[in-house]
């Protein structure tokens, strides 16, 4: 069976990056930049920080492309690199703010649900980001309102689909703490998105 064009393009893109072809980086931004920016923006919630995360991700991709063996899809790999750059940037930001560590933020002893996420006021997302699709917009707005430790857990596990063990390692959380955090985040998202879920024909893509 022949590979789809996008996969063939990615194979060529990887080969050019491995040959240190700098123009391949521009093409990478052209082809996959929108999704990378989307990942970065969900972590950082503002345009300037998201751009810096993308820059960090581009540096990582350039430096680590030699170790990309093609076992996973190239797109999964670059989104993961971007998510990791986002996580690192949040940690750096926390340190700058002289805050407590990301791992310790929020109480997981507290089983109370998170405060309701407000979607009805339709406040604009940070920066003027062009977005389409009401459900997509509401999903992003809901995630955007999650407290940071919950947002990070959802982004790593439910969006990037990292294995639980890897998310535990990245966040420093125990398994029960991570489960609790994810579950509470999902319940808050479910509550906020309920009007959009009912009657939706949700297909696995």
């Amino acid at each position: 069976m022949s590979k789809p064009d996008t996969q063939i393009d990615d194979v060529q893109l990887v080969a050019r990056l491995k040959q240190r072809d700098k123009s391949a980086l521009e093409e990478l931004v052209h082809v996959h930049g929108a999704k990378m920016y989307g990942v970065a923006l969900q972590f950082m919630r503002n345009e300037s920080d998201a751009r810096e995360v993308m820059q960090d991700a581009l540096v990582s991709i350039w430096n680590k492309i030699g170790s990309f063996e093609g076992k996973s899809a190239f797109t999964s790999w670059i989104y993961r690199v971007t998510a990791n750059a986002g996580l690192m940037a949040l940690r750096k930001k926390k340190r700058r703010e002289n805050d407590i560590s990301l791992d310790a933020v929020g109480s997981d002893d507290d089983d109370a649900p998170l405060p309701a996420l407000q979607l009805s006021d339709k406040r604009p997302l940070p920066d003027k980001v062009a977005m389409t699709g009401e459900l997509g917009e509401q999903v992003r707005a809901a995630i955007d309102q999650l407290p940071e430790p919950y947002r990070v857990a959802v982004l790593l596990r439910d969006v990037e689909e990292l294995p639980m063990a890897e998310v535990m390692q990245e966040t420093g959380l125990s398994e029960p703490a991570l489960k609790s955090r994810l579950h509470r985040a999902r319940l808050a998202l479910r509550e906020a998105l309920l009007p959009y879920l009912n009657g939706q024909d949700i297909q696995k893509s």
Partner: peptide, 30 residues
Amino acid sequence: YRQTIDVTRRFCCNRVEIPPTVRTKLEEFI
């Protein structure tokens, strides 16, 4: 609950366009 996980994964980071100013700065960075 399952739909929530599904739409989160599918819609969270999709269809976000890079603002022209960010795109220009990224090109300059490269």
